[in-house]
Amino acid sequence: MIKVTDLSHRIGPAPILSDVSLSLPAGKITALIGPNGAGKSTLLSLIARLTPLQHGQITVAGLDVARTPSAALAKVMAILPQNASVHSRLRVRDLVAFGRWPHHQGRPGPEDRAMVAAAITRMGLDALADRFLDALSGGQRQRAHLAMAFAQGTEWLLLDEPLAALDMAHARRLMQELAALRDAGKSVVLVLHEVNYAAAWADHVVAMQNGRIVAEGPPAEVFTPAVLEPLYDMPLRVETYAGRPLVLNHL
């Protein structure tokens, strides 16, 4: 479980997160939704100790992120930041292999190599594995970064807008892979703008607005006009399809 207690965050004088308390269930897919600027990325990077904690407490699988050594946390959670971009000239395989670094510190064993190969296959990158990153399309690069996070093989996977650059086939494939990980006992937290992906695949949904949690629960409870209309400040309809909510937000 990830437990966030009384979390507040400011950048300069501006409050970015205010009194956020929340628990994210283990062994589930949790979707973080909300309008641009709601504070989703900030929350995720605080959980992933990429941003130093100012006020409040966060534990991941019982480990206090402010106190636990970073190297130990890297074996427990992997993070894909929003707009991960890399200036180094690396081959896809090399980038993915860095995902194993927390486990071997420079001496990869056969198990590490197997995990890297599996992650590359998972993201459909076998044909591109020996290409340089700067010779890939935006979505292909995004998949390489996802494969790196997968290769880390952690109990928790934190992904900030993993679908942003993916076509619909790869988007669905990624959600299927995440569901498979969940079924294997792992826990996934992801920021999504495509509400219908959240509605179809997530077990738990957290809605944020202006640095606060405004709704939390299973998709059927959060994806209702009563919650979504004020959240995004737009009128919309919600239908049911195959027992899951289907948001008609594009009409």
Binding site: A71, V86, W101
Partner: peptide, 20 residues
């Protein structure tokens, strides 16, 4: 070498992999 290569990937990636 690995540490410098990881540093070159950006502070975020380095922290995510447990490097300071």
């Amino acid at each position: 070498a690995d540490r410098f290569a990881i540093l070159g990937l950006g502070d975020g990636v380095a922290r995510g992999l447990g490097l300071n």
